[in-house]
Design a protein around this nucleic acid. Sequence first.
DNA 1: CTGAAAGCGCTTACAG
DNA 2: CTGAAAGCGCTTACAG
Lengths: 334, 334
Amino acid sequence: MNIYDISKQSGVSIATVSRVINNSGYVSDKTRKKVMDVIEKNSYSPNVFAKGMSTASMKTIGILTTNIRDIYQAQCVYYLEQDLKKHGYTAMLCCTGDDLEAKKKHVELLASRKVDALIFIGSHFLEKNAKDNGYLYAASNHVPVILLNGRLQHKNIISILCDDEKGTYDLTTLCLNQGCQTPHFIATRDTMSVQHKFSGFVKACENHNLEIHKEKLHVFSDQPQELGEQIHALLQDKTIDALICADDEIAALVSRVAEYNGIKIPEQVMITGYNNSSFSFLASPAITSFDNRTQYMCSQAIFALTQVLEGKEFPEETMYSGKIIERESTNKNE
Amino acid sequence: MNIYDISKQSGVSIATVSRVINNSGYVSDKTRKKVMDVIEKNSYSPNVFAKGMSTASMKTIGILTTNIRDIYQAQCVYYLEQDLKKHGYTAMLCCTGDDLEAKKKHVELLASRKVDALIFIGSHFLEKNAKDNGYLYAASNHVPVILLNGRLQHKNIISILCDDEKGTYDLTTLCLNQGCQTPHFIATRDTMSVQHKFSGFVKACENHNLEIHKEKLHVFSDQPQELGEQIHALLQDKTIDALICADDEIAALVSRVAEYNGIKIPEQVMITGYNNSSFSFLASPAITSFDNRTQYMCSQAIFALTQVLEGKEFPEETMYSGKIIERESTNKNE
DNA sequence: CTGAAAGCGCTTACAG
DNA sequence: CTGAAAGCGCTTACAG
């Protein structure tokens, strides 16, 4: 069943059928009804390939995530997909991994699939080394790019993010205000986002007149096994009294290892996570975390997208403030 | 840049260019080289829409998940996507939610996108009520269907699964062998898969001459808050000495609530999870779980897909055996 | 408000 | 081994 069949059965030209389908141009109500009836009777739906060929769009958006198994990235994909379909778009998903070459390959792959835009679940795509982000600029020359949780200034790139520096500043301050003297910071990858978080960490310390060296930033392995061992080694340093973690999963593991070492939380060491995911409240003790407004960011991302795809202008950057969710891991009085 | 440009620049017809691109038909080495050079010089890649239009395929597979935020489903998507791209396919992702009507809508959506096949991250798509699965049969009339973690007998449907009945049987038996007398089973949705698990639970009990009533199967809310309260209420029943949970996340929450109630694990109540996800080993105490071979299932799913799409025959059903991962939550001697 | 016709960029029998 | 040509199913100026 194609547009010619509909045309024949309803006794109008294919041009008119097309107009009815797309609600474009003028069609008399009478003709419209006639055509609609035939379309519905046959439950006809237009061939997307042919449509794509004439309009050069298939209403498809590429979503890139480094690792969909990461509960936070999965959450982003969930919200993005939800809003995407409200606007008639479908999501094409790519899990790239952390390797830069692989990321480039995936961008090319999606480009060859002629997606209408690209959304990067961002913090993992922004390397610390600025020149490694060239492929993002390149991508934005062909198609609008949305950076979720990351920031890059360039034509055709829109950044939607939460103030991670402030977030970590607040989390660190929370610990310091309760008497912690030697906080350390743990991450598993040295991304831009981690840099921002670390910078918030440093500012909070400076604000409390604590000396801060780079040695208090630990970039550990992202393999659970190895990560566990590195945390174990770190915890031998009994001066540490707070561990600010770049995400909840790290924090949950820290909590486990601390328990294994007989270290009391929060009495001996305070722990904070990030993202306010299930890991934070399923851990024992529950972990203080930071709600970085995932859902808002995702909605905004899709809204930005629709605007840009309609040729409208949209602010280069949207930054949300997040909020601390206090739990047992930083509360000595509970 | 299109096939005509390449044709002109290399001095051959578009038919030949097409043959070179697709490695189809006969092309002399000399001609092939000439064409390839031009293609590479221009870094030309064929228009997927036009290709799709002539071949009626865009090498795209629809993956349906009820909830990508579920760590287990996310894991499946990860492995599926990984294998899919090895075979030149791209993944279109839909998160349907649990509502039956919404599921149907998403199947139609993907059908209208002309995906080459559908993969259902299964257990959540198979309703207990057989007649509610009609839409899956319907889908399989248009396009090959792969059911991951679920079983349905029908032409053009291939089921890949792990023996969940056996899995739950083993987990339950593990507890019973250590002296548990009153195990209960907790799930958050009454799917086919839950039915199988419950049936394994029942068999293990019968095998230990324990009476089993339907009242020992609890189908609770899937909202964490409410679920927590229901678990809390259940734990007031002090006769319960083992809780077999349908997945790790439930188990982790049970563990939290038990701790809150001063119930010792495993001494007073043993707990088992399912899927062997991060939740199981990040919980405290670590939770005994069941490795249901996600990665094997996913690889097999994609292998099956490629076979079927090449018109080859493939076994209707593949069933893997899983394995117990013992941890502290069922080990009184540690 | 409606239709005829060109165009989008491929693939693939068919003929040579 | 290669090319001319039909066909895939839409959209959209253009003319009326």
